[in-house]
Amino acid sequence: MTLYSFIFYILAAVILLSTGWAITRRNLVHAVIYLVISFFGSAMLFYLMGAPLLAALEVIIYAGAIMILFLFIIMMLRVEGIEERLFPLKQWLPAMGLGFISFQVCIFLLISAGSEEPLKAAMAEPAIFGHFLFRQHWLSIEIVSMLLLIALIGVLHLGMEKKRKESGE
């Protein structure tokens, strides 16, 4: 086991444990903090697998912007006291069955590829990656920027509608 694979397993354990803690917390702030740890782990995993630009973007956008947005909304709304209940017992059986089948498929995937050779370490330089992105995928970049603009306009519309209605009433 090389140092890289050791780091990979450590990071995988950190990601899985913190995500598992996050999705079972009742307190939303705790869940968001655990998820930030999980996203930091993912960012280090990206760096390990040769994507330094994406690791930086993961920290800035996922762990920084999105999670802070969640924290703002949680502090803005009073969300305490929601009684969490799992779904009815009648629905447990199909859910457990499907989850079990998915887990079995994952295990089978892991076992069947036993003799596969490990991935070689490689690095996508940010400059080369940027050139590649804007040469090969410039149309998709434009479409994604349009998507972000539309999301911005939609959020503005959703936020303003109530105010207009309130002033109308």
Binding site: F8, M49, P118, L119
Partner: peptide, 13 residues
């Protein structure tokens, strides 16, 4: 050398 590809897929799954 890092890990086999299937381990990454397993983690993602």
């Amino acid at each position: 050398m890092i890990v086999p590809y299937s381990h990454v897929i397993f983690l993602a799954g």
